[in-house]
């Protein structure tokens, strides 16, 4: 067991956690925004997948990871637009539309990928990493946490931004009101549908970026179905974070550790089945729910379309 505490193991675990946790962080921050606004975004996985596809294709064409990230954001926005039109504007069922989004994006990206690349899987070059001065020189922790691609630091900055907007600004207040008491917000003269529209679009942009990160930074390729449930994990993280971005970040990091520990454990010579490791985060959450589930975790108007005058 002493081999578990070697610096190689810790370094591999930490950097793996950041790599696997960053897309979760983007998507879960996005989901936090839309959940606080009262829209349960089951289509998150679809937004991530389309972001991954769009990001990869554009990064492949242009050779620039930054333009790729922008394209991923646009791709996520496009999918989010469907959610806006159907759920926010037409007031249709959020779960049905979310599942429609996921199925359609899975089919579409797989088809487009096959039509463009056939069965060849072109690779992108590695994304350059940025070393944070001083901090990156700290042994073990330094290189794994502070020698990441710049987009990771943007993700960490976004945690602060989302926290600040949600808890310290008027738009944040409107957003939370749209999730907890939309009628009150309407009475105060704020357009609930507009607030929710912006919320869903922000979610789409962040989820698309998370997907783009998976394709451009982590994998370097696009593979159909590559998001593999990450969107759903992000929904869970957002739900457990209960609208507090800092907890969302902690959750994303912990899930990142769980997802990457299989590889790190193998590096340390401990052979735990992948199935067990990938099950652990969900088992933990379910246990937490069983032990602590005594109160509501979610905004009261979540998943209910807002129609003026209807109770």
């Amino acid at each position: 067991m002493s081999s578990l505490l070697t610096s190689e193991f810790l370094a591999a675990l930490l950097s793996g956690a950041v790599i696997a946790g960053a897309p979760l962080l983007f998507a879960a921050l996005g989901e936090t925004v839309s959940e606080q606004g009262g829209v349960l975004n089951i289509g998150l996985e679809g937004m991530m997948l389309f972001g991954a596809y769009g990001g990869f294709v554009v990064a492949h064409w242009t050779g620039s990871s930054w333009i790729g990230f922008l394209a991923a954001i646009v791709a996520g926005l496009l999918v989010a637009l469907l959610m806006v039109v159907f759920c926010v504007r037409m007031g249709r069922d959020q779960i049905v539309v979310g599942i429609a989004i996921l199925l359609a994006v899975e089919g579409l990206t797989s088809l487009l990928h096959a039509a463009q690349f056939g069965t060849s899987y072109p690779r992108l070059g590695a994304v350059p990493t940025v070393r944070v001065p001083w901090l990156a020189d700290v042994p073990v922790v330094g290189p794994s946490l502070f020698g990441q691609p710049a987009i990771v630091y943007i993700g960490i900055a976004l945690v602060v931004v989302v926290w600040w907007v949600l808890s310290r600004t008027n738009p944040g207040l409107h957003l939370r009101a749209a999730g907890w008491k939309p009628a009150a917000l309407d009475n105060a003269g704020v357009d609930v549908l507009r607030v929710r529209t912006v919320a869903v679009l922000v979610t789409g942009a962040l989820a698309g970026l998370g997907g783009g990160y998976m394709a451009i930074v982590v994998a370097g390729v696009f593979v159909p179905f590559m998001t593999g449930g990450m969107g759903f994990i992000a929904i869970v993280i957002a739900m457990l974070g209960r609208g507090r971005p800092l907890w969302v970040a902690v959750g994303a990091f912990l899930f990142g550790i769980a997802l990457s520990s299989a590889t790190s454990l193998q590096l340390a010579g401990v052979n735990v089945p992948t199935d067990v490791v990938q099950m652990l985060p969900f088992v933990t959450v379910i246990l937490a729910l069983i032990i602590f589930a005594r109160q509501s975790y979610l905004p009261s108007a979540l998943a209910t379309p807002y129609v003026r005058g209807r109770r």
């Binding site: 469907l82 159907f86 037409m90 007031g91 249709r92 069922d93 049905v96 539309v97 599942i99 429609a100 989004i101 996921l102 199925l103 359609a104 994006v105 899975e106 089919g107 579409l108 797989s110 088809l111 096959a114 039509a115 159909p224």
Partner: peptide, 24 residues
């Protein structure tokens, strides 16, 4: 047609969208 099987998923997704739309 030399396409992946996943065309079906797209069709089902589209059916759901059109269903939601026609209901609206």
């Amino acid at each position: 047609a030399g396409l992946p099987n996943d065309f079906l998923l797209l069709l089902i997704g589209l059916i759901l969208f059109f269903m939601v739309f026609t209901e609206w």
